[in-house]
């Protein structure tokens, strides 16, 4: 389905994940985050950058373990910055698909 986010028409899944990363930009991210009650700061952007970079390299959403090992993002920070469902929320803000891994 389509939705107007930050003045831009984007296509999203029923759960609100962008289906096309090329429609993502920083304004879209800021608005999705604010809908989740999150105001983005430097720490959030570091996570978003890593998620997008790693997704482009591997074609997969990284696990929380990989984010720590490869992205130098501590698990505590991740949970503090994106509380209650950190990986799902971070992926949503980063314009990526819903993570499907059990870990």
């Amino acid at each position: 389905m389509e939705k107007l986010i930050a003045g831009q028409k984007v296509s999203i899944t029923s759960e609100g994940y962008l289906t096309d990363l090329s429609q993502w930009n920083k304004e879209v991210a800021i608005e999705i985050a604010s809908e989740l009650g999150i105001s983005l700061n430097e720490g959030h952007w570091k996570i978003i950058d890593f998620l997008q970079k790693d997704f482009k390299q591997t074609g997969k959403i990284p696990t929380i373990r990989r984010m720590k090992k490869e992205g130098n993002i501590s698990t505590k920070d991740l949970y503090d910055l994106f509380p209650e469902g950190p990986l799902m929320k971070a992926c949503k803000v980063a314009g990526l698909t819903k993570p499907v891994s059990c870990v």
């Binding site: 929380i64 373990r65 505590k76 870990v103």
Partner: peptide, 18 residues
């Protein structure tokens, strides 16, 4: 291969996750 950590690291991960 599935990125499931060894037990000590897993315990740390769960604890860090709250």
């Amino acid at each position: 291969e599935l990125d499931i950590p060894p037990i000590p690291e897993f315990i740390e991960m769960i604890s860090d996750a709250g």
